[in-house]
Nucleic acid binder design. Sequence first.
DNA 1: GGTGAAGTGGTTTTT
DNA 2: CCACTTCACC
Length: 563
Amino acid sequence: MKILEGLNDFQSKAVTTVEGPVLVVAGPGTGKTLTIVRRIAYLVEQGIKPEHILAVTFTNRAAREMCERTYALLGSRTQTIFIGTFHLLGITIMEHVSGHELLLYGRDEQLELIRSLTGLTSKKAFQLVEKISRIKNCIEGCDSTTREFFDLYEEARKDRKAYDLDDLLTIPIQLLQDKSDLEAFQFQYIMVDEYQDINPVQYKFIKTLGRKTQHICGVGDADQSIYAFRGSHLENFLNFTDDFPGTKQIALTHHYRSTEKILHASQRLIEHNQKRIGTSLSTIREEGVPITIVSLPDGHTECYAIIEEIEKRIGGTSHYMLMKRNISNHRGEISYRFSDFAVLVRTNGQATEIAESLKMSGIPFQRIGRITYSRNRELINHFQSMLSNLPETLDYSLLMKEMEKKGKIVPEDRELMENLFVAYGNASPREAIHAIIHEFMLRSSGDEFNSNADVVTVSTLHAAKGLEFRVVFIAGVEDGLIPFRTSQETVDMEEERRLFYVGMTRAKDELLLLYARERFLYGNRSIRLPSPFIQEIPEEYVQHIFVPERVKEKKSNQMELFS
DNA sequence: GGTGAAGTGGTTTTT
DNA sequence: CCACTTCACC
């Protein structure tokens, strides 16, 4: 197998530079995952033992993709390579040390514990749980009142022999420090995906794991750091070279996703940031069409414009459009599918508005977010209730059947569960159930983006990171939304600009930026101004459409927003 | 300690 | 607009 096949020079260099600290600067659409996967394969081909290789990610989605693609290259040799999230690594270390399965608390269990301890209202308790989590992740300090609750919680948690998700990071750091002879986790070659997003605790975790090796590879992009609010520390990435002396920095500069106009426009925008590693990207793609900036009278017409633009490209699905296409506008070939489109917004509230409009118009869509979380939660609860009265032996097929009656599992879960039952077939029922709970907590993704379904994607800008679409709409490109302003706190303009940059660079062929001049917000009609970031995109890359406020028109003209 | 009027603020999210 | 907090007053 040719490991360097199809790679460009920069990617090849990143793959073959394995000795000592390496920083791979991987902008959007530069083949980051491909490079990491080939690098893993390269290490194995060089004779490095698979169990000495570690690749950590933040999300299950990323871990799964990396794992599958590595498996496609290496087959069964992939199995002893640790490819997984920080949390999965953490619990693996903890269970290795303790020698048995651990009881893991998710947010719901934490909440229940806090409520039973304090009697707080559920909202207050939830805020406290979140605060405890931030404290454990060193995102914020601990004031004296919180301290009392914190200690109370910790004591009760230890009494119950339970661990929360944050413990999966903090405790392994202690374990690795105390037991310098944790041979199973003496990784020689460490790769950290999305290095720009690591928080202080994850940083310490990496530093501790990497004490005995020099071969640490950070992969990421300073321009896509968008999680400061949950503790991401961009400086870790920017200081990598000083932090690990002798670092070889390799930038992947060939861009494969967006047209030249979209790429150049987003590059010019992000160049307004100070905190970055200035690498310039060049695309292999054609010039493309200009970015369309649409000024609309209000939020409703914004939704309408999106629907109309989708229908225009798809050939029409509403009765109106179907009629129109059949009579006069048939193009013979439908060049776009619904799954080619994404609508990106700043807040979930906007996403709901867009989703409702799409529903009305009959356009199929999926929302990316944390919606499916509750289904996993239900399964976990079910398994946890089983732990209390376990039978001697467990008939898995019977169990599956029972749950399908009760309607507890949907077909998508079935496969995952069947695999799990096979995997844990030899374990005791208790062990198996524990393992399955972990599996659902730590390996099944809550975001559930289905890339196969032919539906339009509706997502926040944050949740769209890592995805790509032929046509991207960014709605609500207004001052106050992008950048998002609250009355109180000052905005981090660079962070907001990065978020907008992430949104723009999701687009392959077409990018449409929409803003309303007036919007119904919090019950008030408010006058809106376009986002200041629009000014930062040079005119040569854009075309403007101004949709005037609709004066009373004949019904037949209402469908056409653009002349 | 409990009630109602007045005041305030409203994002982003993984494991 | 709506959910929540604050504060004056009983």
